[in-house]
C-alpha cells in the first residue's frame, strides 16, 4: 500500500469538513467541521513527516492541536454567549452585519 493513501484520506476528510462548514447551520456542527479539517491537515502532516523522515511535520501537527484547543475554547465561549442572548445556535440568525 503506498503511503500516499493517507494523503488521499486526509484530502477526503478535509473536503467533507469544508462541505460541512458550508451546508450545516448549527454553529456547533459547523465548528466540528472546522475541527475535522484541522485533523485532516494533521494527518497529512504526520504522513509527510514519515515520507521525509523528518519530525518537524509531527511538531507542526502538535502546534496545530494546541492552537485548535485554544480556538475551541474561544469559539465555544462565543457560541454560548450568542446562545444566551439569542436562544439560538444557528449561524444564519447572526446575519446583522450585511450590506
Amino acid at each position: 500500500m503506498p503511503i500516499t493513501n493517507y494523503l488521499v484520506l486526509a484530502g477526503i476528510l478535509f473536503a467533507i469538513g469544508a462541505t460541512t462548514v458550508m451546508l450545516r447551520r448549527n454553529a456547533i456542527v459547523v465548528f466540528m467541521g472546522v475541527e475535522l479539517m484541522l485533523n485532516a491537515t494533521n494527518l497529512a502532516f504526520v504522513t509527510f513527516a514519515r515520507i521525509h523522515g523528518d519530525l518537524t511535520g509531527q511538531v507542526l501537527a502538535f502546534f496545530v492541536m494546541v492552537v485548535a484547543a485554544a480556538e475551541v475554547v474561544v469559539g465555544l465561549a462565543i457560541i454560548v454567549t450568542i446562545f444566551r442572548t439569542r436562544r439560538s445556535a444557528s449561524v444564519d440568525d447572526v446575519n446583522l452585519l450585511k450590506g
Binding site: 469544508a18 462548514v21 458550508m22 451546508l23 459547523v30 449561524v91 446575519n95 446583522l96 452585519l97 450590506g99
Partner: peptide
C-alpha cells in the same frame, strides 16, 4: 449591486 453579495451569512462567506 455588490451590496447584495454581502448578505451577512457566514456560510456564504465561507463558500
Amino acid at each position: 449591486g455588490l451590496r447584495r453579495s454581502q448578505n451577512g451569512y457566514v456560510r456564504s462567506y465561507a463558500a
